[in-house]
Nucleic acid binder design. Structure first.
Length: 192
DNA sequence: CCTGCGATTTGCT
DNA sequence: GCAAATCGCAGGC
């Protein structure tokens, strides 16, 4: 590989514990149709985790979380915001990683057009609802195969080792104290 | 700078 | 019927 973006990530990368995947995704990249950036903040969700949508078992919505790794789980939050997750763990075990913030790399003009002309670049992708709007990710991406579709994740150079920080997840009421959020220390691009 | 609140839809009880 | 993995705006300091 060359440059800041490495090889496209495939099922094997995602078929692991969501906490491991969440930590290793920091510094990787998320793109849709040439627009995207470097992942700087993630959260993990697991089947035995009360905050996870799969905790209630298999439903129409949660079914994808139980399916093969490397698929997208996109859902509508608060009736307004689309949130983008990657399904992890092998087929049959439910888990996911929520992508919470990106450092914009490509397609800044298209991001600004989608997010509004007066918005500071700092706020383009700093938040899970914001980054899906900036990249144009919506319900059509739910259940998509991220190894082959228009939305894809890409590895980081072996030389790049992000300075990781861990803390509690944001915006949840159940299991709110579990330290299952990862971000890049001192990054100006994280949420909040 | 900070805090508080309304938007708007869906999934599940 | 209600809570929800959020965001942007209004208003106060």
């Amino acid at each position: 590989m060359s440059g800041p973006v490495g090889d496209r990530l495939e099922a094997g990368f995602f078929a692991r514990d969501p906490r491991t995947v969440a930590a290793e995704l920091i510094g990787c990249a998320l793109f849709r149709d040439g627009v995207g950036g470097r992942i700087v903040e993630t959260e993990a969700y697991a089947e035995y985790d009360p905050a996870c949508h799969a905790h209630v078992g298999r439903t129409d919505r949660s079914e994808v979380l139980f399916g093969p790794p490397g698929r997208a789980y996109v859902y509508l939050s608060y009736g307004i915001h689309q949130l983008f997750n990657v399904v992890t763990e092998p087929d049959g075990t439910a888990a996911a990683v929520l992508i919470r913030a990106l450092e914009p790399l490509c397609g800044l003009e298209r991001m600004r057009a989608r997010r509004g002309p007066r918005r500071p670049d700092r706020e383009l992708c700093a938040g899970p609802g914001r980054l899906t709007q900036a990249l144009g990710i919506g319900a059509a991406t739910n259940q998509a195969d991220l190894a082959t579709g228009v939305v894809g994740l890409y590895g980081r150079a072996a030389s790049e080792a992000p300075d990781l920080e861990v803390g509690p997840r944001i915006g949840i009421t159940k299991a709110a104290d579990w330290p299952w959020r990862w971000w890049e220390r001192d990054s100006p691009w994280v949420s909040r």
